[in-house]
Amino acid sequence: MDSACPHEGGPLEQGDIEDLGDGKLALLCPWHLFDFCLDDGSSSTGLQNQVYDVQVYEGKVYIKTQNALSLIPMKDTEVAHCGKLSPQISGPSTSDGSLTHWAAQILGTPDPSEKVRLTEQVKTWWESGAITDIGEAEPPSQPNRKADLTVRDPGKIKRGKGGTLASRVALLHSLANIEQWAIDLSWDIIARFAKVNLSNGEPLPRGFFNDFVKVAGDEAKHYGLLEKRLTELGSFFGALPVHNGLWQSASDTSHDLLARLAVVHMVHEARGLDVHPQTLARFAAQGDEDSVKILEVLYNDEITHVAAGLRWFTYICLVEEKDCVPTFHELVRLHFKGYLKPPFNTEGRKTAGMGEEWYLPLVKPVR
């Protein structure tokens, strides 16, 4: 299991193991007592931790990650004898195998399906150790998009309320567009801020890159699920107009890592948690259970993404001796247009570690 708690990065290796009953055991984070089932990494709080299948064969340890075997390459004869195991995915073929090199490559990839494929591949390389160098690469000023997309202002995109098949398709199409941008936002924060040195002279910890590679992989998974569902409903991504509103926030915060974390990963990502209950209810009311299942996957993953943004915002503030919550308020007021709008998903935000003190002061005051 990953040793960093997905809530706020607590040291799980220092936690206690307790019996959940029914023969199941849970690891408790020593910081906030979040529980993680040792079987699948699930938590009663709604968070999800990574759990890896470990197998021993002929004195060698094989760790099966989500996408491929890692650590030790296997011979064909070993694969034949091992049954459950599959060959290791080969490493990067280019001479520049740094993480930021591939981040810039993905940002420059216009086709969303290829963007997803590359993201999953690079995530596998990073997690398996095929890529170890963070490197340094200049990201594009804006990610590439397919030329046949119709781009409009966010306010001119019509989504409907899910009461008809056409409006449900429009909602799923809008979510797929958001997920494509979310893939790019994850790679951009890696490439753009890789060489940031904190006020103590130290670079960003490797855990920062681990987290945002995982986020990129989650967003790629989300896009793939949504694209597949659009196809099942007789549509496809690109059939409807899209907007690039999320990238405006990325451009506005391209000079300041704390501002990027605050606005993109703690305001916009958290807003996704807020709209989830209503969106889910619209699809459930129409009996669209397949879409409901996808939305639940998105929601559970997005909680961990908000937690990651909060974790690194808090970490940097502590290193730079800044008061976290007032600094967050200052940056949001500076870089986010308007006020935060209720209703808020208080429970979802709380699960991600974001209490009301973070966002209620940013709501328009009642007069």
Rank of each mutant, 00 (worst) to 15 (best):
I183S: 02
T100Y: 00
I63P: 02
A191N: 07
H173Y: 09
W187H: 06
V56H: 06
F193Y: 09
S291A: 13
F283H: 04
D96N: 15
S128Q: 04
L25A: 06
V242M: 10
C37S: 13
Y359V: 04
T351Y: 05
A103S: 07
E127T: 05
N210G: 15
A182W: 03
S128E: 00
A130S: 11
R192E: 09
T119W: 02
G155E: 06
P241T: 10
W31L: 05
G163D: 06
E179M: 07
P87K: 07
K84A: 13
L310T: 05
K161T: 14
E138G: 04
S86H: 11
F212K: 03
L69P: 05
D218I: 00
F193C: 07
L334A: 14
P241I: 09
F236K: 06
F193W: 07
E179F: 03
V116K: 00
E356R: 10
G245Y: 10
C82L: 14
P277S: 12
H265F: 02
L171A: 04
D53A: 07
S90A: 15
V116R: 03
P87Y: 02
L118P: 00
P110R: 01
S167F: 05
L149D: 10
L331Q: 00
E289H: 13
T94R: 14
Q50S: 10
G21R: 09
I316V: 15
L27W: 03
H335K: 09
V264W: 01
D148R: 08
A191F: 05
D76I: 15
D188L: 11
S44K: 07
F336P: 05
K221R: 03
C82P: 13
Y339A: 12
K60L: 12
K75H: 14
C37F: 12
L340F: 06
R152M: 10
E357K: 10
H305K: 00
G162P: 01
S167G: 07
I303S: 02
D301G: 00
V366S: 11
T94Q: 14
D133Q: 09
A166V: 15
T132C: 02
E114M: 11
G9W: 01
L25H: 03
A147R: 15
W187T: 02
F193R: 06
A166N: 15
V275H: 03
P143Y: 05
L28V: 14
T77S: 15
S235A: 08
Q55V: 15
C29L: 03
T346Y: 11
D40K: 08
S251F: 12
L318V: 12
L310H: 02
I17T: 11
G10Q: 09
Q121D: 08
E202K: 15
V151N: 04
E232K: 10
E202W: 11
A166C: 12
V267S: 03
G355M: 10
L47M: 11
E114C: 06
K64S: 09
W181L: 00
F34L: 10
R159C: 03
K221E: 01
E227P: 04
R282Y: 01
G83C: 09
D211L: 05
D184T: 08
N345Q: 10
D274G: 09
G97C: 12
S90K: 13
S90H: 12
D211I: 01
I63F: 09
D76T: 15
E320M: 08
G348W: 04
E269I: 00
I134A: 04
G135D: 08
A26R: 08
A176G: 11
C37Q: 13
F209E: 00
S86A: 11
T164A: 12
